[in-house]
């Protein structure tokens, strides 16, 4: 079996190897309760990564996800009292709108997505600072428990966050595999020029990809706010790098067209195991980003489809 044939299977092989290695170092790792809580902890990151998957799937990138989540923690906290449960809908729409704006800038003005999303992320971050007055804001605990408490409770020992993650994965998988949107995103990622020549309105579907990414980043932010019972313009900082790592090590290359949301689930689990092992190996939390930076570089180098890239700047 050659490397090309092996490539699609590398993500889960990596995951399996990592689990074996970590459980050899620390047998407690395999304890079901600790595994469940490990998985639940990573759910906001997973939701963010799900969104970024759509942006990367078409060959773009979404660097605004982290700022979007930051903004939503603040927006959700500030508006919880006045809007009630509708705040969730509002936040997701807001995220989708910001994402769609990135898409509009990218497709209309031919601004590469890494710049348009970086800029829109800057706007989102600033909105968060302005709304929060640069302080942490907290939710009314009673309101939160009444409206969103279910998100972070458990049924038969299984955290509801995991169920949320599972439902979102299913929805995203359905969009990717069974809808016109998903088909067109794949066509754009795998062969944009052929998509154009087939009469697909590429700009529209690219915008949809970024809107999906924004909406999911907003959901991640909402879950954060509920977990922390409040928000701040910086709570989600440090999530962007691992989220992108999760997408790439999962097997969706920066060049797009292959991989998808199921890959991102595997990638997120890889990130979770790496994080957990860093704890066991007593690596300081402040040093984690160094590792994720290095892993990101390795993952990009391994997964990128060089046939599609003529020039890199």
């Amino acid at each position: 079996m050659n490397l090309e044939r092996l490539k699609p299977h590398l993500p889960w092989i990596t995951l399996a190897l990592l689990v074996v290695i970590v459980s050899l170092i620390d047998p407690n790792f395999l304890n079901p309760a600790s595994m469940l809580s490990l998985a639940a902890d990573i759910v906001p990151l997973f939701i963010m990564a799900l969104g970024i998957t759509f942006a990367i799937y078409i060959g773009g990138i979404d660097l605004s996800a982290q700022s979007m989540a930051n903004m939503v923690t603040v927006v959700a906290t500030v508006l919880l009292t006045s809007m009630g449960a509708w705040v969730a809908v509002f936040c997701v729409l807001l995220g989708g709108l910001f994402g769609a704006f990135s898409g509009f800038v990218t497709t209309r003005f031919y601004v590469p997505s890494f710049i348009s999303t970086l800029a829109v992320g800057g706007v989102a971050f600033s909105v968060a600072q302005w709304l929060s007055g640069q302080r942490s804001v907290s939710m009314n605990a009673a309101e939160r428990d009444a409206l969103f408490g279910w998100m972070i409770s458990k049924t038969a020992g299984v955290p509801h966050e995991l169920m949320i993650a599972a439902v979102l994965l299913l929805v995203c998988w359905f969009i990717e595999r069974r809808t016109v949107v998903g088909r067109n995103l794949k066509a754009i990622g795998a062969g944009e020029l052929a998509a154009v020549a087939s009469g697909i309105s590429v700009a529209r579907y690219k915008t949809i990809a970024f809107a999906l990414s924004g909406a999911l980043a907003a959901l991640a932010g909402l879950l954060f706010a509920v977990k922390l019972s409040g928000g701040a313009p910086s709570v989600a900082n440090g999530f962007l790098l691992p989220a992108i790592v999760a997408v790439l090590v999962g097997g969706t290359p920066l060049t797009g067209g292959v991989g998808g949301v199921v890959n991102t689930m595997i990638g997120t689990l890889i990130v979770a195991v790496i994080r957990a092992s860093m704890l066991y190996l007593e690596i300081n939390a402040t040093q984690q980003q160094m590792f994720f930076g290095l892993i990101l570089i390795a993952a990009i180098a391994l997964t990128i489809d060089r046939a599609k890239l003529k020039i890199v700047k």
């Binding site: 067109n184 795998a190 062969g191 052929a194 020549a197 087939s198």
Partner: peptide
Amino acid sequence: KVEGIVSGMSVFENMTLSQQS
């Protein structure tokens, strides 16, 4: 290979690319 077909997509996906509605 660039504008005609999308390589990486299956034969049926390519055939219906222009007529998904």
